[in-house]
């Protein structure tokens, strides 16, 4: 984590780089695994904003997938599901690659979970 913090600090000090969205996403996933959900989400949202500003759709998909995993763990997947579905829907090719397969699998998992979950109004 220290190496990651240092690298992100250097990249920011130098005015940014194409690697920053992935570095922030990686830090976000590590923070999530360490149990710091708030910091994890902050890093993932920063990663997503940067990836969007870079027009880096592949990195957006990775980050929205990581964010969806985090929000599932928090029991609040609705917004993350919509963002992931929107990002996945922008792809026109590459559906057999690892990231797209993972995203599609997660979307199916989230859809199945929402069907099986009782609606709040009837709970």
């Amino acid at each position: 984590m220290t190496a990651l913090d240092d690298t992100i600090a250097i990249a920011n000090a130098n005015g940014g780089s194409l690697d920053l969205p992935e570095l922030l996403r990686t830090r976000g996933t590590l923070l999530a695994q360490a149990g710091d959900a708030a910091a994890a989400e902050e890093n993932l949202r920063s990663s997503l904003a940067l990836a969007r500003s870079h027009s880096a759709l592949s990195l957006q998909l990775r980050t929205t997938t990581s964010l969806a995993r985090l929000k599932i763990g928090q029991g609040d997947p609705a917004e993350a599901h919509a963002t992931l579905a929107e990002t996945y829907g922008r792809f026109t090719e590459g559906f057999d690659t690892a990231d797209l397969r993972a995203a599609k699998g997660l979307l199916s998992e989230m859809s199945a979970a929402s069907i099986s979950m009782p609606k709040l109004s009837s709970a």
């Binding site: 990686t26 994890a40 990775r62 995993r69 995203a103």
Partner: peptide, 11 residues
């Protein structure tokens, strides 16, 4: 080395 962490559970 930066594997697709998206496939790992993060919660």
């Amino acid at each position: 080395g930066r594997r697709p962490w998206s496939e790992r559970p993060t919660g």
